[in-house]
């Protein structure tokens, strides 16, 4: 447990050094710099070009399920940092950190994740971790 603060620091540092993304949509949609942590159940993981996508059911404070769609970079970019075609399986309980849309709709881009097995993944430019620490906003 002593290593947890150090691990958290590493994850926060990794999240703060993202390089510019190359989007197939306007970056204007995203609330740059804002981070939202989502805990939910995986519905679908699309491991494909031009961007991978994760469909996630997230229970809100009112008990209602909100379905989020979050994208990340293509397989060639995220494979080296630990994302795999089976990183998210339907039914998995996972936590992701996203940069959300400005307009409040449930869309975002993934900048970190804790997988069902506790593996921590950062943005596409950071190294994977085997720690169970959660991405921090």
């Amino acid at each position: 447990m002593r290593s947890r603060p150090i691990v958290l620091l590493i994850v926060v540092a990794a999240l703060s050094i993202q390089n510019p993304l190359l989007a197939h949509h306007s970056s204007a949609a995203f609330d740059a710099g804002k981070k939202v942590i989502l805990k939910g159940t995986v519905k679908e993981w699309v491991y494909s070009n031009p961007h991978c996508m994760l469909l996630l059911d997230v229970k809100g404070q009112d008990g209602q399920i909100v379905q989020w769609l979050a994208e990340t970079q293509p397989p060639a970019s995220i494979f080296p940092v630990g994302y795999r075609r089976d990183s998210f399986k339907a039914g998995d309980q996972v936590t992701i950190t996203v940069e959300p849309f400005k307009d409040g709709r449930p869309y975002g881009r993934i900048i970190g994740a804790v997988l069902a097995d506790g593996k921590v993944l950062g943005p596409a430019t950071s190294a994977p971790s085997t720690s169970g620490a959660a991405p921090q906003p």
């Binding site: 197939h24 949509h25 494909s48 070009n49 031009p50 769609l69 849309f101 869309y107």
Partner: peptide, 18 residues
Amino acid sequence: CSPVEQEIYDKRFGKAAA
């Protein structure tokens, strides 16, 4: 760059970004 994959992405996420 696969036109088929591009179309799927545009329908699911790209349109939302617009």
